[in-house]
């Protein structure tokens, strides 16, 4: 399918089309976050044999809205001993970092906010913003728990970028590009063309099929750690660190952290679905494919991964800091390296 930005085509490459391209993902993010929060509430409740929120709206579907309104109304407390500037800045930096990632996510063949040819690299680069924000927030809070949480978070995120980056690198080698749209287009034509199953190609891809499966698994695990989700939610490990780096935050600023977490979840889910699950392409070849269907496929694939993240969160206990590092450096990294080497060899041979 031909890829382009529909607003550029309709309105020309001008300020207006750029504005729309920026605002649309923001709108999407807000709606998605509300749905994801509801999903988190409901799925956790159902897994635990509870009903979950039932009062706000039919079956409690307005609950996230109510929570957002509550958070906005809450008093904004800044601790007396905090570094005011950094304390106030941190949530915005985190949120900006995670929102910037949306710039290169292709929602459908006809819409990607900014079509740049190093999209994958860009997402990783801006993703690192969050580390700065977290360390800032944790340090500025002037709270020992926050500081511990922030330090843990920084080390964790940096460690897990590496296996994650290796996975992306392997995919880039396989696809021969860093452009998200191109990677997606490559996988058109049915689910057997997804990189999850070795990508497009002849029968020879059977050699790398187990490794691409493994790679997607590694990315899944690494992405959980990068977004600070259970089992890697050590930075906010409730039982030890109360709430980690955002212990002292309240009201709207806390909501920013919250939003950033959910938007990060979506970004990693989106990368996973674009790189390994074919993004906006239909799993059934040309059946149900098209520009509008593209949105549907992309969002539902990403949402499925978000669901798995939530599901895992309510299943697993939390790992410990040193075990997390062990997992990252001694398990994920070697596996990712082996896969990377094998995929590179495959590229050279075929």
């Amino acid at each position: 399918m031909e890829t382009f930005n529909v607003f550029d085509v309709l309105l020309g490459n001008n300020f207006l089309s750029a504005l729309i391209s920026v605002v649309l993902p923001l709108v999407f993010l807000v709606i998605y976050a509300l749905i994801a929060i509801l999903g988190e509430l409901k799925i956790s409740a159902w897994i635990q044999e509870r009903l979950g929120p039932m009062r706000t709206g039919p079956y409690g579907i307005l609950q996230p809205l109510a929570e957002v309104i509550k958070l906005i109304q809450k008093e904004d407390i800044v601790p007396a001993g905090a570094n005011k500037l950094l304390f106030n800045l941190a949530p915005y930096i985190i949120f900006a970092g995670s929102f910037a990632g949306f710039a290169v996510i292709p929602f459908t063949a006809a819409f990607v906010p900014a079509e740049i040819n190093i999209g994958l690299f860009y997402v990783f680069a801006v993703g690192a913003f969050a580390v700065i924000g977290i360390v800032m927030g944790g340090w500025a809070s002037n709270n020992k728990y926050s500081l511990l949480g922030a330090m843990r978070s920084a080390s964790q995120m940096i460690s897990y970028e590496i296996p994650g980056a290796l996975v992306i690198l392997s995919a880039a080698v396989l696809a021969n590009t860093l452009d998200m749209q191109k990677i997606t287009s490559l996988q058109e034509g049915g689910f057997w063309n997804w990189f999850l199953f070795g990508g497009p190609g002849g029968f020879s891809k059977i050699w790398i099929l187990p490794f691409t499966l493994l790679l997607s698994l590694i990315y899944m695990i690494a992405s959980l750690a990068e977004t600070n989700r259970t089992p890697f939610d050590i930075p906010e490990g409730e039982s030890e660190l109360v709430a980690g780096y955002h212990t002292e935050y309240s009201g709207m600023k806390f909501a920013m952290f919250f939003f950033a977490e959910y938007s990060n979840m979506f970004i990693v889910a989106a990368i996973l679905s674009i790189v390994f699950l074919g993004g906006w392409t239909s799993p059934f070849g040309s059946f149900m494919s098209g520009y509008w269907w593209g949105i549907f496929w992309f969002v539902s694939k990403a949402m499925f991964i978000v669901f798995i993240q939530i599901w895992l969160r309510w299943t697993l206990p939390r790992v410990r800091v040193d075990q997390l590092m062990y997992l990252g450096w001694k398990i994920l990294l070697p596996f990712a390296l082996v896969c990377f080497v094998i995929i590179s060899l495959y590229r050279i041979i075929y």
Binding site: A45, W46, E49, L51, L312, T315, L316, I331
Partner: peptide, 27 residues
Amino acid sequence: VWTWFYTILIGMRVTLKHLFAKKVTIQ
């Protein structure tokens, strides 16, 4: 590595089973 992975899958099976079980809380 394998037990790590395998026990997680078992845990996920249990929670999935409960996801569709009858709920015990009431309004």
